[in-house]
Design a protein around this nucleic acid. Structure first.
Lengths: 125, 125
DNA sequence: ATATTATTGATAATTATTATCATTAAGGGA
DNA sequence: TCCCTTAATGATAATAATTATCAATAATAT
């Protein structure tokens, strides 16, 4: 027995899956807490880490200096509005093509890529 | 008079320019401190922020959750080794082309993009 | 059902960043 | 060159983010 499926982990993953906002740990904690107020912050940190190891959850890199998380692990890009700071999904740029360009043009062997576009979103404009 | 050129700012920029390792604030502080031990950490934070506003310094997003900095503002990509965690420059992928793809294929208006490739570097392999 | 032990919740400790404030010094004008 | 104004500094406190600790709980193999 090296790993256990807990009710907490299930709830955390379920809540993150429903969130399309790419929350930080704190934001995820608040959403989880609304569903089950007995779940503590440390449990969020622990389970998000575990879910990442299991490739169920992926980091979203943003320029605000805090990590965000996404339950959609299909490698895709993100757009961050410099004004409202919301993070949106971008499916119009092929990340696999980027990895292919790397493979042919560079000496690095990369199997993973994070892409963050920035600008002002249509709502803020 | 709204801004002043201080000796500290000069040293910090000079040291960062010479560093090719994309340091964190702490790493930059240590390098600066070796040159002038009177310069405090808060001054590093302040001047790096200022230099970013002046487009002399750019953030490097990495998956370790801490911001790194680069004095090369020509928009380029980075590769991070998952083993030794070093960050390397990548000039083989055209970021302007990425922004062009965004312009034609998506509804977002983006003027900036951060790209981080990951894998194992040749030295660690 | 029971025993083992991974996981939890609470909280302390650590790390990263920002704010505060008295002092210092950049640089414009006399 | 010497003041004068005030931006910037260094030291440190405050805040925010993350990790570590530990007794209690609960998942699961037997």
């Amino acid at each position: 027995m090296n790993t256990r499926n807990t009710k907490q982990k299930e709830i955390i993953f379920e809540v993150l899956c429903k969130m399309k906002s790419h929350p930080t740990i704190l934001e995820l904690y608040e959403a989880v807490h609304a569903k089950d107020s007995s779940i503590g912050q440390a449990t969020i940190y622990r389970n998000v880490s575990k879910l990442m190891e299991e490739n169920m959850v992926r980091k979203v890199l943003t320029s605000d200096g805090v990590l965000h998380y996404d339950a959609n692990c299909n490698n895709h890009c993100h757009f961050r509005c410099k004004k409202c700071q919301k993070v949106f999904d971008v499916f119009d740029v092929d990340t696999q093509k980027l990895l292919d360009v790397m493979k042919t043009n560079s000496s690095f062997e990369s199997d993973d890529v994070y892409v963050l576009f920035e600008g002002i979103c249509s709502r803020c404009r």
